[in-house]
């Protein structure tokens, strides 16, 4: 099917623990897996330390000598480039002194903008279009958003967007189901608080669904702001506000408490999936969506098996020819 969609695959599913996705040969095997399945661009995820060696510009450069060397590494696996990189400024990094930063704290804004610069510069150097960011931390870790908080959060992303735009990279705010910016109304407020010329929205179909927001309707209502997509499915919605549980990263997303759901994210076409993937992709096509669609398995099982199933779904159910 001829359309504007560009497909990529997220590498985060391979990096399930700090010490398992480190050797270049292991990374090559993941890249070749994506390539053999028709995904010739990948999304990286920011991290920290010597073993997260696809997670920070300076560590990537240490491993590959620089942007050109890194691109050679990708090209050697028939992967043409990096579509995007996910970054959460609230995730402390060894390279930044393990500083705890919050986008709703104006005192942290300058440091957040500063820490974004190397990412933007590196992504520009390797031809990557999007820096995908977590706009706010988990809801359970902070008081409810006040009247001024969304505005404050918007300010820092406008500033990051300005820095990234200067480098030629877009910034997309990624919704996740644990985020303090949680409801459709709050997301709308955040989008209103950011400059459309500098800041877009990264729509994650499963995360929105878990958060109680219909991704098809949301896209239709905000098509002009959606600059990035994560495509994955889920079998559950957070109907009991489990995202507010202390330690929701484990109590909710790993089934430590609440309904004890140990796996929330699933491959496309999963039985009982709540995301209407076909309708969503049809909507993207109707709007000639120009950005990347990153298929993501997000720690759901054997990475290669899930990538194969996702590729099958694209080819057989979405009419995407394998390139």
């Amino acid at each position: 099917m001829k359309d504007t969609l560009r497909w990529a695959y997220a590498l985060n599913q391979w990096n399930i623990r700090m010490d398992v996705f480190v050797r270049h040969e292991d990374q090559r095997r993941a890249l070749k897996t994506c390539s053999a399945l028709g995904f010739h661009h990948v999304e990286l995820a920011a991290g920290t330390g010597r073993w997260d060696n696809l997670g920070r510009p300076e560590v990537i450069e240490l491993n590959h000598g620089g942007p050109a060397g890194f691109l050679d590494f990708l090209h050697g696996c028939s992967v043409h480039g990096v579509s995007s990189m996910y970054w959460d400024p609230g995730q402390p990094a060894e390279e930044e002194g393990w500083a705890f930063r919050s986008t709703r704290n104006r005192d942290d804004h300058a440091a957040i903008v500063e820490s974004a610069k190397p990412f933007a510069d590196f992504l520009a150097a390797i031809g990557t279009e999007q820096l995908v960011v977590r706009p706010a931390g988990s809801a359970w870790l902070q008081p409810p958003l006040g009247a001024d908080d969304v505005k404050t959060i918007g300010e820092v992303w406008n500033a990051v967007g300005k820095v990234a735009a200067a480098a030629g990279v877009g910034v997309a705010l990624h919704y996740d189901c644990l985020s303090a910016v949680h409801s459709a109304d709050e997301v709308g407020q955040l989008l209103a608080a950011t400059d459309p010329a500098l800041v877009g929205f990264a729509l994650d179909t499963a995360e929105l669904t878990i958060g109680g927001i219909d991704p098809v309707a949301f896209y239709a209502g905000h098509a002009d702001r959606v600059t990035h997509v994560h495509l994955k499915d889920t079998r559950y919605a957070d109907t009991g506000e489990e995202y507010r549980m202390p330690g929701a990263e484990t109590t909710m997303l790993r089934g430590g408490a609440g309904r004890r759901i140990e796996r929330w994210f699933f491959e496309l076409g999963t039985e009982g999936g709540l995301v209407d993937v076909k309708a969503f992709v049809a909507t993207l096509r109707e709007h000639d969506y120009p950005g990347w669609v990153v298929v993501e398995s997000d720690h759901g099982g054997n990475p290669a098996e899930l990538a194969m199933l996702n590729s099958w779904y694209l080819q057989h159910e979405l009419g995407v020819a394998k390139s």
Partner: peptide, 16 residues
Amino acid sequence: GSYAEATCVAKWYIDN
């Protein structure tokens, strides 16, 4: 190792 990844890597080798 996993069969899935081994199969993908082998097919990559075939295709390239």
